[in-house]
Simulated assay, not measured.
Amino acid sequence: MSVDDDTKAPQQSDQPQASESAPNVVETPPQEPVDRVQLLDKARSFLTSPQVRDQDVWEKRKFLVDKGLTELEIEGLMRELPPQVPQVPPRTYPQPTPSNLPNLLVGIARIFSWVAGGSAVVLFMYYRFLLPRLTRSFQARHALRMHHTGLMERLNTSLTSLKETQTQTFAVLPQPTPFQEDPKYKGCQTLAKVLDTTEEATDIPDFTLLRCALQEIAAQGRKPTTEELFAALEAKLPHLTSDEGLQYEEKLWQTLTTHPFFHHEDADGKSTWSFSPPPPPSEPPLLSSLNTLTSALPKPIGQQTNQFQHTLQTLFDLTGYISTQTYSIPSISSRSSGLNASAHLTPEEEEVRREIRALKGLVLNRRSFMPTIPRAASHPSISSTA
C-alpha cells in the first residue's frame, strides 16, 4: 500500500462526515498539523520498509517531494534511518576442477619411455653399423698421416744434409768478384767528363753512361723520370736518335732495369730513377791481420848515423872473407892428405898467409878501439807477437 492510498483514505472518510454534518454544523478548516504528523509517520514507515530500504536515495527523495514533504523534513527522516550496510552476495563459488597431476605424470613417464627406447635403438645402430666404419676410416687416415710425417722427416733430413754439404763445398770455392767499374771512368760524375775521357762514345760502358746521367740530374736536386733520363742522354749523344742508337737505347734500358745499383720509385704517378753507389769492398782477412800485426809492433828507435859506418861495415865483410879463405885451404889439404899443411906450402903461399894474418890482426885491433854502434833493443811484444 502506497502513501497516496493512505492519504486518500482519510480524505474519503472525512468527506461523508462533512456531508453528514453539513446540514447541522458549519464546515471547519482541516487540521494541518495533525495531517502533517501522519504524513511524516507514513513517510518514516515508507523509508523503513524492507522493500524500499535498499532503493536509491535520490529516487526516495523524489518520491517524498512528490508527496508534499519539504527538504528539511526529508533530511530529518533520512538522518533518522540507520546506516545502510551493503548486502553481501551469497557465497556461490564454483566447484574446483579435478587435479591434472596424474595425467601429467603419466605423460612424462610415456615421454621418458619413448626417449629411452629411441636412444637404445640409436645406440644399437651406431655400435652395430657406424662405429666399425668410423674406426676403420680413422685408422686409415692415421696410417696415412704417419706415412706423410715420415716422408716429411726424411725430406727435412735430406735438405739439412744437403745444406751442410753445400756450405762445406761453397767454402772451398772462390767467391764471385764484385762488380767493379772501369777505373778510367770511375772518377767521372757528368756526361761531359765521360765524353772528354774517351774519343769514341760507343766505347763507354752502359753502366757509366747511366750513372753519370743520373748523378748529373741528381746534382740539380731532383730525381729524373725515364723520359728525362733518356732525353739527357740523347742531348749529349746525338747518335742515339739513329736506328742503331735505338738498339743501343734498348741495351741501356735493359741495364737500367736489371742492375742492382739503379733503383726505381713510383711517386705521384711518375716513375723516377736513382743511383745508389756500391758499398766499399771489405778488407781481405790477410791484409787486416798484417795491419793488426804492424800496429802491435813497436816503432824502431832512431839510430845514430856515423860517417865511418859504411867503411866499418866493409872492413867487417873483408875480415870475414879473409878468415874464411885462411882456414879453408889448410883444412882441405889436411882432409885430403891427413898431414900438416904447412909442410907442403910453397914459399909464395907462405908469404900470402903471413900477410893475411897480419892484415887480420890489424883489422881486429882497429875494431877493438872503434866506438860501439847503438842497436835497437828487443821488445817483449815482438817475441809474443811472433
Rank of each mutant, 00 (worst) to 15 (best):
E216T: 09
S381W: 08
K67Q: 15
L130F: 06
T92H: 06
G302E: 11
T326N: 04
F63L: 13
Q95S: 14
Q51E: 13
H239I: 05
R36D: 13
R366H: 01
L229F: 02
T198F: 03
Q139R: 06
K223S: 15
L210T: 11
L252V: 02
L290F: 12
D203S: 05
F369M: 06
P94I: 09
H142L: 07
Q38F: 09
P102G: 07
R154D: 09
S19D: 09
E20M: 15
S49Y: 08
V34T: 05
L155Q: 13
E20G: 15
Q168I: 02
R79N: 09
Y321V: 07
F179I: 04
E265H: 13
L101A: 14
R133F: 05
K62S: 14
S242R: 02
P30I: 07
Q166L: 15
E153D: 08
G118D: 00
E249C: 10
D14L: 14
P96Y: 02
S242Y: 00
V25G: 07
S328A: 11
L104H: 03
L286P: 02
S383I: 03
P285C: 00
L359R: 09
F129E: 13
F129L: 14
T202V: 06
S378V: 13
Q220V: 04
L318Y: 09
L297N: 05
D4L: 14
L69W: 06
P86N: 03
T167N: 06
L105E: 07
S328G: 01
H239P: 00
P277I: 10
V122A: 15
I217M: 14
Q313D: 10
K251N: 08
E181M: 12
R44F: 10
